[in-house]
Amino acid sequence: MLKVSNIEVYYGKIRALNSVSLSVKQGEIVTLIGANGAGKTTVLRSISGLQRLEKGKIEFLGKDVSIVPAENLVGMGLAHVPEGRRVFPGLTVYENLEIGATSWRKGKACLSGDLENIYELFPRLKERSKQLAWSLSGGEQQMLAIGRALMARPKLLLLDEPSLGLSPVLVEQVFEVLHKINGQGVTMLLVEQNAFMALDIAHRGYVIENGRIVLTDTASALSNDSKVKEAYLGG
């Protein structure tokens, strides 16, 4: 479904990604784990068209999308839940979700089916649908960001640190919902610092260090890998 081949990205003169390759197959949850500053977010930004590539190629659903801008990729079925949630703070929960449907909605097409699904996954959002997003708690904002991405009817969902800044209970809730969404047929590429939770729901994983993929395997194998255990799972 997604094939990233040897991409390189520079920030000014600094090389942020060094020949990164990875792939995601239909129906999978793939996780990319690594420390702060390893290049996880840059990988996602490159895939979703927010970051210019110096070298390499990205294919999505068999098409070369290396230079396709972000807004067009959404229409092709690739939605990105950016790091730090980035909900629209001055708009209501409902409006946030409505904007998520921009890529496919024509005129005043009905959204109730999509909304119902999201409200079922996140009942809190339904309760707060008329509230402005800035007044939501961190966890609710994360739910809204995921909900907004789902409104685009994605085939592949890119998630950038959905656990960031959430309490352990909320992290568990969010991951439970991600598992459910995957069950509805949405493929996922999940970037996480919380390697324990990520490897728990993922099928496969990649480990990134200093802009380079250093390890890849099934999630269960990675969980048992001594180096991964030491570096990311707290021994």
Binding site: E71, G75, P82, G100, T102, R105, G107, R148
Partner: peptide, 22 residues
């Protein structure tokens, strides 16, 4: 939809782009 796009750009441009807004 246009009005909503305007507001989305005002609130957060990156989020607007990743929501499919040109």
């Amino acid at each position: 939809n246009l009005g909503r796009s305007f507001k989305a750009v005002r609130e957060d441009e990156i989020a607007a782009a990743t929501s499919g807004i040109n």
